[in-house]
Design a protein around this nucleic acid. Structure first.
Length: 590
DNA sequence: GCCGTTTTCGGCCCGACTGTTTTCAGTCG
């Protein structure tokens, strides 16, 4: 595990401990923020720990936490934390994962009834002891029991590609209701995050007084609803059969923009926006942007802006910030300065540079792949079947590859309107060597080099391995650089800053693999790559019909990385792409 | 514990819903 991750976990745990101990909530928030920031940091925090100034330059890290980071890097622990953590039993901390159970309630359980583990909590429910505790009635206990069952059955956050269909299905139902004027999914799904905690649905109606109740009822009685967690006048929360929570908010169509802004988040972005409003003598909530002294309860009071998100940004003197960027990662100051990126769009992609055919483990022929790519309006497609090490995927040995190259060249001649490149997805062996000789690689138009095996090797080895691949003159793209599978496999954890630097120096592109299980590179690493001047590729790794549709997930990730079309080789014109494909070889081997 | 177009001290977003309370604390997003 990287030091960044370890420190992020350490601070997150401290936040939990301090919360349980009833510490100042702003101090708790500071720890939570530091944990988030360190988790997202692409640079290796060890490289920054030599100089306090470098650490303090990180948003959310002040003098106090900087000293703690240095202590952790030097000694592997933080003495003060170790002391504090001892005060709270480990089991109590674990109980914080149960939804609806917060620090105050848990502290009461622990101190008044010695409930320090899930086992003890369940026992206390059974014996009725829990009901005797303050503010715990029959209903609270029942709700808690359900919540425990949910926490035990529901595992991780759901992958983007699994949450989206659920949201679309709910939206279709909501839009079919007569009273509904507008409906959208919001939350982390709209921001395109790689995993989704719950599906947020926003509905706009002409008159909430009249129709909110009916809409909420329709939502709570959908077939997929297993459990209603909360059902109020304008806000409803349910658990669906996909083990996903779904939240509905019904607002007046006049205030839809304000509600969409609030409901899309992120929480951190909302806080930053509201703070900005206050500094400008305004107030922002989910009903609108208001004058600071406005009586918002009075229906005759009109907001400064509320109908659209764009109106609100404008009144706050900000350029419109795309949902994918709303993570409090500097987007507000960029929107103020007019330096927001012109984010890449799906229609900017003009080439697929990583796809498989029946020659290895794909489902379609070269022609079928080419026609599918052509149908999407691409000018180029690369055939990149697996190399020999991928025996399970019917990887090609050098002999078969030579023949395959000939087949691709023949197809390229036969099919007009699209250029078909002869490529390969070559395994990066565990020591960084390529699975084919340079002589073979030199015959290919395009080489995607990817790690498939030894994905749990230590960080230093992984860094060396991938650096060696980047430095190979014939490698154009590093495919799914870490090999992670979301919610399934952590993958390699190389020193990303070093890889990015090498990629920038050699003109090697780093792939955002668009499959929703991969999304590898992840958003924060892709952003670091752009900032360092490295190129990205966005590929679907298509194996058959329908797979090119995954591109949308890759685009969302790229937009979260602030990527513009010019940063992504798949957006190059045919001529520019051709030039790029030969540039590295020419530079390195002449 | 962080941070600065009022500030190196004194602030730190805002509202819905629930259950247990007689007016609100706790949790969540």
């Amino acid at each position: 595990m990287s030091t960044n991750r370890k420190l992020a976990d350490e601070f997150a745990r401290m936040a939990d401990v301090l919360e349980l101990l009833g510490e100042n909530r702003f101090r708790v928030a500071a720890y939570q923020r530091a944990a988030r920031v360190l988790g997202e940091l692409a640079e290796n925090v060890e490289d920054l720990a030599g100089d306090t100034n470098d650490l303090v330059a990180i948003e959310g890290i002040g003098k106090g936490l900087a000293e703690k980071i240095i202590e952790f890097v030097e000694t592997g622990r933080i003495a003060e934390h170790a002391q504090t953590i001892k005060k709270v039993p480990k089991g109590v901390l674990e109980l914080m994962a149960i939804p609806g159970l917060g620090p105050k309630t848990l502290a009461t359980f622990w101190k008044q009834a010695d409930i320090t583990s899930l086992k003890k909590l369940k026992a206390a429910i059974k014996t009725g002891e829990l009901e005797t505790l303050p503010r715990m009635g029959k209903k609270s206990v029942e709700k808690l029991a359900k919540s425990i069952a949910f926490a035990e059955s529901a595992g991780d956050r759901v992958r983007l590609g699994e949450a989206l269909p659920v949201a679309l299905e709910i939206l279709e139902k909501m839009r079919s209701l007569k009273a509904v004027v507008k409906a959208d999914y919001a939350g982390s799904l709209r921001r395109g995050k790689e995993t989704i905690g719950d599906v947020d649905i926003l509905v706009g109606v002409a008159d909430p007084e009249k129709s909110a109740a009916a809409v909420s009822k329709a939502f709570a009685s959908m077939d997929c609803v297993q459990d209603v967690i909360a059902a109020g006048a304008t806000k409803t929360s349910v658990r669906t059969d996909k083990n996903l929570q779904a939240d509905l908010r019904v607002v007046s169509a006049d205030q839809y923009g304000a509600a969409l802004l609030y409901f899309t988040g992120s929480k951190e972005n909302n806080v930053a926006m509201r703070e900005r409003a206050i500094r400008r003598d305004l107030r922002l909530n989910e009903y609108g942007l208001w004058k600071a002294d406005a009586d918002m309860k009075n229906p005759r009071t009109h907001p400064v802006a509320a109908r659209t998100e764009a109106d609100i940004f404008k009144k706050l003197d900000l350029a419109y910030i795309e949902p994918e960027m709303r993570e409090d990662r500097g987007e507000l100051s960029a929107a103020e300065d007019g330096t927001l990126p012109d984010l890449i769009k799906l229609s900017d992609i003009k080439a697929e540079l990583h796809a498989h055919t029946v020659a290895s483990d794909g489902l379609w022929s070269i022609e079928e792949l080419a026609n599918a790519a052509k149908a999407r309006g691409f000018h180029t497609v690369a055939v990149t079947d697996h190399s020999r090490a991928q025996a399970v995927a019917n990887g090609l040995d050098e002999k078969r590859l030579i023949r395959h190259i000939e087949d691709v060249r023949a197809a390229d001649k036969k099919i007009s309107g699209i250029r078909i490149l002869a490529g390969s997805e070559v395994d990066i062996l565990s020591d960084g060597k390529m699975d084919y000789s340079d002589k073979i690689l030199s015959q290919l138009d395009l080489v995607v080099a990817s790690p498939h095996m030894a994905l749990s090797q230590d960080d230093a080895k992984a860094t060396k391995r991938l650096l060696r691949a980047i430095e190979n003159p014939y490698v154009h793209i590093i495919g799914h650089p870490t090999g992670r599978l979301i919610n399934r496999r952590a993958g390699l954890q190389p020193d990303m800053a070093k890889l990015i630097q090498a990629a920038a120096e050699t003109g090697t592109a780093l792939e955002i693999n668009a499959h929703h299980w991969r999304l590898d590179l992840r958003d924060t690493h892709a952003r670091a790559a752009i900032e360092a001047g490295a190129l990205l590729a966005i590929n679907t790794d298509a194996h058959g019909p329908g797979d090119l549709d995954h591109l949308g997930f890759g685009i969302l990730t790229a937009r979260r990385a602030w990527a513009e079309a010019k940063h992504v080789v798949n957006c190059f014109t045919a001529a520019k792409l051709k030039k790029w494909l030969t540039a590295k070889r020419q530079k390195m081997v002449g």
